[in-house]
Structure formats: C-alpha cells, structure tokens
C-alpha cells in the first residue's frame, strides 16, 4: 500500500514537471512577454531594463528552475490584462467553478446510478424506455443548446430562476459561497443541470451495462441459488461490483468539468475559471493561460491518484500487492 502510494507520487511529480515545462515554454516563448507588457512606444533601454528585471536575460535552464521555484511558492506571475497576481485571480474564481461542479456531479450520480440500475433490472419497463430515449437526446444535444433552452423556458418565459450570475454570495474569508443564500442556490440550478446532463447520461449508461454484466456473472447466479433476498443481491452484491468503473469515470469527469466547464460558464455568465480562461485566450493573457495549464494538469494528476487510492479500498484484489 505504501509502496503503491510512493510509486504513484513519484509518477505524479514527473507528470507535473513535464506540464510545468510546457507551461514555462508557453510563458517564455509564446509572444514576447516584454513586448506585451510595456506601453506603446517604449524605448529599447526601457525594454532591456524590464527584460533584466523579469530575469529573461538568464540561461533558459536557470529560468526554468526559477519558474518551478516560483510556482512552488504559489507565485504564478502577474496577469497582463488585470495586472493582478494570477494566483489570487485563480483563487477568486475557483469557488464558483468548484461549487458548480460539485452540485452537477452529485446530481449526476444521485440520478444516474438509480436510473442505470432500473434500466438494467427492468429493461422493458416504461420508465427505462423513457430514460433511455431522453438521455439519448440529452447526450446528443450540445451543452450550449441545452443551456439556452433551459434559460428560455425557466428564466425568460416562466421567470422562475435567474439566467446568469451567481446571485448573492456569502463571504467566508477566502471562499465566497452561493450555498448560503436563496438567490445563490436558485442561480446554481440551471447551470448545474446543464453541466450534469452529459455526465448523468454517461453514468446511467455505464451503470446499466456494468450491472447487466454483473447480473449474468456466476457469483450473482450463485447468490440466487443460495436463495438470498433479491434486494440484498441487487443492492449489496451486484451494485458494488458494477460501481467500480463508475469511480474512474466520475473522477475523470470531475476533472473534465472543472477544467472545461467553459461553455456552460459562458452561457450562464458564471464567474468561474472557464470564463477567466476564455477571456485570457481572447486577450491573450499568457500568464493566466500558463497558470491554467498548470492547474488543470495538477487537478488531473490529483484526481487520478485519488481514484487509484479509492480503488484499493473498494477492490480487495488490489490491496495485497
């Protein structure tokens, strides 16, 4: 267990170094940072001073080491556009995205797993057919269409829910949450449904096919042959086996959602990291882009590690090694 963990950590560090190298190259070589930082019509002397001040005159390797050192201390540079430290910029946007993703994931799991089980157990019932058909529509419709439709129905026509923004926020020091106010909660509903829909379909279909596989396995037939109660077999013996791949997929999906909630955030004008990223691409705000790259890389490495560790808890076969 400890060996497995240490090997995983070592791999994570290597992956992060590679990501850092790419981010660094982007930072250093995509466009001239000096050119984009100085005012127009600056003299060559002014540019050189800035170049030295930024440490851009030193050898590339030294620069890289410095870059990694800065990243480790939490310094991700200064945004060209906002002229603020990128770190605080990211941190101010992170709560919005994380709250959205958490709500969307919980929604997807809470609805997707039971529906998947239902479709596996009663494939011919009306509800399973309805689910299968609607989720097919859900998965084939692009996110922005779903989002716009929801806005049209619930915000424009019915006027039940707000169409954009996070509503009233409660400040908890570093974290600004929308969970503690009514308008904040109402604002979460539409974007999280939009974001959850694809994930929900994926989880539903995965649970369904896994469950069908597991139910035809020998150990489930053996459980039936021992006359165990049906509910017990389905809920405890079969579902646990069927949920193994769901852990992996959910983990990866959370990463995907945090990193690429861009479309949903744009549609709902959600002040999260996706919006920050789209704006940075348009500007182009290279330090923000590089920091974003690092952050996404870090996120995926962490999630993969957590999934691996979770696996060893769920599956005893992985524990012995």
């Amino acid at each position: 267990m400890i060996r497995l963990l240490s090997v995983r950590l070592l791999q994570a560090v290597l992956v992060m170094l590679a990501v850092a190298a790419i981010a660094f190259v982007m930072f250093r070589f995509v466009g001239d940072p000096v050119a984009s930082m100085v005012r127009e019509g600056a003299t060559q002397a002014e540019k050189d001073t800035l170049r030295v001040a930024l440490g851009l005159d030193r050898p590339v390797l030294v620069q890289f080491v410095n870059f990694v050192g800065q990243v480790l201390t939490g310094d991700l540079g200064t945004s060209f556009r906002y002229q603020q430290p990128v770190t605080s910029l990211l941190l101010s946007r992170l709560p919005a995205t994380l709250e959205l993703v958490v709500v969307a994931t919980v929604l997807a799991l809470a609805v997707g797993i039971p529906l998947g089980v239902l479709c596996a157990l009663k494939p011919n019932s009306f509800l399973s057919r309805l689910t299968q058909a609607t989720t097919l529509v859900g998965i084939s419709m692009p996110t922005f269409v779903t989002g716009l439709l929801l806005i049209l129905i619930f915000a424009v026509n019915l006027r039940w829910l707000p169409s954009s923004g996070r509503g009233d926020l409660v400040d908890l020091g570093l974290w600004q949450t929308g969970f503690l106010s009514l308008s904040g909660l109402k604002s979460l509903i539409l974007p999280s449904i939009t974001l959850a829909l694809f994930q929900l379909t994926l989880i539903m279909r995965l649970v369904r096919s896994e469950m069908i596989d597991v139910l035809s396995s020998d150990y489930i037939r053996f459980a039936f042959a021992r006359g165990l109660p049906r509910a017990y077999i389905y809920r405890r013996l079969a579902l646990r086996n069927a949920l193994m791949p769901v852990v992996t997929v959910t983990g990866l999906q959370i990463g995907q959602l945090i990193a690429f909630a861009i479309v949903t955030e744009t549609v709902f004008q959600w002040p999260g990291m996706g919006l920050l990223f789209t704006n940075a691409v348009g500007y182009p705000d290279v330090p923000v882009l590089a920091a974003y790259l690092l952050f996404v890389g870090f996120l995926f490495v962490m999630i993969n590690m957590i999934v691996d560790i979770l696996y060893t808890f769920i599956d005893p076969r992985l524990r012995t090694r």
Partner: peptide, 13 residues
C-alpha cells in the same frame, strides 16, 4: 448449489 468454476462463483469484493 455447487457451481462449476470456483474462480467465478465467489464475489470478489
């Protein structure tokens, strides 16, 4: 009941 394949008739989890 006793099944054919002991490798698959017990639940691995």
């Amino acid at each position: 009941a006793i099944f054919q394949d002991p490798m698959t008739s017990l639940n691995p989890l």
